[in-house]
Computed example of a mutant assay.
Amino acid sequence: MAKLAMSRYEMRMAKSLAHVVNILDPDMIVLGGGMSNVERL
């Protein structure tokens, strides 16, 4: 169940970041705080 939840989270984050890239066209995206501690990301 935890693997499924993490997989969903990763997919939703990827889609969200793709939208941000398409709208704002940033040179880079930096994940900080607690996100930087998640090895799968």
Rank of each mutant, 00 (worst) to 15 (best):
V38K: 08
K3E: 01
V38P: 00
P26S: 00
M28G: 11
V30L: 02
Y9T: 08
A5C: 02
G32C: 05
S36P: 05
A5E: 14
G34N: 08
V30P: 02
L4A: 04
A2P: 02
S36H: 04
E39Y: 12
S16T: 11
S7K: 07
A2D: 09
D25W: 10
V30T: 15
G32E: 12
L41T: 01
E10L: 11
I29R: 09
R8D: 13
A18K: 15
L41K: 04
S7L: 14
G34R: 06
Y9V: 15
I29S: 01
R8C: 03
K3A: 08
D27C: 05
N37Y: 11
M35N: 09
Y9G: 07
L4Y: 09
S36R: 15
R12C: 10
K15M: 07
M6L: 08
I29D: 14
M35E: 06
G34M: 09
P26T: 11
H19V: 08
A5D: 04
K15N: 09
G32V: 04
G33F: 04
K15F: 06
H19L: 13
A18T: 02
M6P: 06
V20N: 04
V21T: 02
M11I: 15
K3S: 06
N22V: 08
V21S: 02
M11N: 03
E39H: 10
S36G: 10
R12I: 03
L41A: 01
R40C: 05
Y9E: 09
Y9P: 02
D27H: 13
M6F: 09
D27M: 11
G33E: 08
S7G: 06
L24T: 05
H19Y: 12
K15A: 14
V30A: 05
L17A: 00
A5M: 09
